[in-house]
Design a protein around this nucleic acid. Sequence first.
DNA 1: CCGGACAATATGTCTAGACATATTCGGCTG
DNA 2: CAGCCGAATATGTCTAGACATATTGTCCGG
Lengths: 245, 245
Amino acid sequence: MTGQIPIHELIRAQLEQEILSGERPPGSKLPNETELAAEWRCARMTVGRALNALAEAGMVQRRKRAGTFVARRGVQETVLEIRDVATEVRAQGRDYAFRRLARRESGAGPEQMTRLGVAEGAPVLLVLGLHLADGEAHALEERWINLTAAPAAAQERFEDAPPGAWLLQHIPWTEAEHEIAALAADGQTAKRLGVPVGTALLALERRTWLSGQFVTFARFLYPADRQRFTARLRQPGNKASHKGA
Amino acid sequence: MTGQIPIHELIRAQLEQEILSGERPPGSKLPNETELAAEWRCARMTVGRALNALAEAGMVQRRKRAGTFVARRGVQETVLEIRDVATEVRAQGRDYAFRRLARRESGAGPEQMTRLGVAEGAPVLLVLGLHLADGEAHALEERWINLTAAPAAAQERFEDAPPGAWLLQHIPWTEAEHEIAALAADGQTAKRLGVPVGTALLALERRTWLSGQFVTFARFLYPADRQRFTARLRQPGNKASHKGA
DNA sequence: CCGGACAATATGTCTAGACATATTCGGCTG
DNA sequence: CAGCCGAATATGTCTAGACATATTGTCCGG
């Protein structure tokens, strides 16, 4: 009798549309749970569930005693999907390969101290490698690994498998941060990527921590025409399904 | 007696830690709701709520009849906060200003047809403007507006207020898409931004729709050293609060 | 006129049941 | 042995109530 789509979902969708259509303008107060429950002839908890979903999605704001209000449009948040370089390349139907250019273990110098946030002299591993698509340079990777946090990495050679994949498999992490920027290729970088000096590059930097301890820093450099990042953004509220494969 | 933090939250946190610590490895099966409810001496619904929260966060996967399983680490999703240029500049403690460079109404040509997804000849408005920080060029904006979706925009001059802010106030949207790329400045662009030709630029493109109908396209060009995008990423599970101001 | 105490109110959480539904497992049959 | 079918199982949803808790509006006194 209820139909196959749940009541709390119906309520949510209905209110969502009323909000998006402007029928319920930002700042306006929604009926309280008891009233809505009476309207929909369902339990208060069912209404509460719908309203909580809207609140989680940022469409409404709930305050005890005060009520539930349509939220004012806030800061935009987008979901950016950042995939493995290998995955990215293969998704384009091209052949993927990795070639290590350099590998060096050392104690952290002053530059690493600030960039990586490790103590001076802490053992770090630097791996420089090239990601190839169909045999051509696709991206240059500069990878720093904190050997204190990931001692097992010292045993790895990373000759034809990128360190990123290995780390993902072996070292857990709890926090990460990404930065995207553009820069011009310097001499050495240009040579390695096989592009003219000064070419615009897209840089993706990633820092990863395990409960506060720095694990790894990676910088990927893509020639401008070989990579872009796309982010799909939905008006807060259109939750829909997001079960990723 | 219950303490001030809710039971479903306690259960969620406990399971989350067991998963993060590796005590419950990816692929392993969690006890079913009834068992967990008995363990915690609470109602099944309370356990269900905790498990649903974990599922929403992507830490576990739930299948009827089969049970609840610890998820394998999937595609990484990051939350990228894309703010208004004005907000961005002011956040750096600098003065913000906008200067319109050009404004042109016309029918969509073939290029706009593909790039904007509108019919040929549809009325569109192009606004070209410069975002200034402390009087210096900070970003160049190229803005296309579909006048069919936003007819009121035809009345606006956009002389010293950017179209983005106006659109946000006046035209609702339901879907948006972002793309980030790097490119080299061509002659005209370089001149407008006051940088040498060939300078690496960070490009942010945004397309916005209102229930399927194209509303606006914007392309922001930032000289490489003036802008970067940062995205903080959390291991699925650490939900915490995300009430943005 | 201002500030504090108090009561009213709306949400937050929880329970103990019930029925619905998808999926898997196992056994039966051809 | 393959394929189908039914039963068992775990989750999904819902109800009608209860008590907790935060916040707000009001009233009253200084």
